[in-house]
Amino acid sequence: MGRYAIRRLLQLVPVVLGTTFIINFMVWQLPGDPFAGRCGQRPCPDAYITAMREQFGLDQPLLVQYWNFLKNLLTGNLGTDFNGVSVAGQLGDAWPITIRLALMAVAFEAIIGIGAGVLSGLKRGGFIDNVVTLSTLFLLSMPIFVTGYLLQWLLGVRLGIITPTVPDEATVPQLIVPALVLASLNMAFTARLTRTSIVENLRSDYVRTAVAKGLTNRRVVGIHLLRNSLIPVLTFLGTEVGSLMSGAIITEGIFNIHGIGGLLWRAINGQDYTIVVPVATLLVLVYLVSNLLVDLLYGVLDPRIRYE
């Protein structure tokens, strides 16, 4: 297990190098000059553009730029953006908010999704099962920006239960509705996955054995059935942490949350690669690390998995 973990960690190195290179290359490929439009109504003077290009190293060849990026990344020096504001500072302000939002979304996915899935799987064809099947179908067919704007309008504008946009401090209660929106798709999928898994395992021989042992129904379901049924569900939840981060870009945009998503959104529009590249890199790292953790967790959840 230890050796497996180390090998997997080493495998991350080429992946990180590859993805960050592609990110740098694509940003470099973006059409237009990032500095040309920075002087209001008038075109920027050539001297300004040249100076800025020099300052941010845009006059260097791509490979040199990439080398400098790696050097800065390893030394933790992210520099400033085009406006001279510290990139690390902006990340530091935005990151905790996104983390909070994502964790809340994962919690909703796990608690509501698994709960609904278990209830509907245990009583297949019953009332709850039908309600869950219908509502998950509804959620799955709605893009999250539709769900987001709909809830914002309904709860925020019409009913006034929440503020339509999230204030700067973004506390946990303020983030409940955005987190539900962010979680909606995965929550529906989690419920369906749990249901399928429960239905499948309900018929298995070891559940029959557990009943034959004279265990209470609660123990048969809560220990024997659930422990096995949740293996694929937890794996799904783990691998989807990465996709939650990209979902956060839309959700944060709708509710005006000053997290990573909002930061990235503004930076892309302003062609400010000093923000785009580190944020994209961060998202890649989150994705890779969460996948690694899931793979390691899988061996703990299912003892039949062997890491050689």
């Binding site: 298995s204 021989d205 070891y206 029959r208 054995t209 557990a210 009943v211 034959a212 042992k213 004279g214 265990l215 024997h224 422990r227 096995n228 293996i231 959840l301 299912d302 003892p303 039949r304």
Partner: peptide, 21 residues
């Protein structure tokens, strides 16, 4: 009564035992 007074063993012990415990 199950397990205490009347108990049962099954054909396929691999699938009849819980794989994760």
């Amino acid at each position: 009564i199950r397990g205490e007074s009347v108990s049962m063993i099954f054909q396929d012990a691999l699938s009849s035992l819980n794989p994760v415990f």
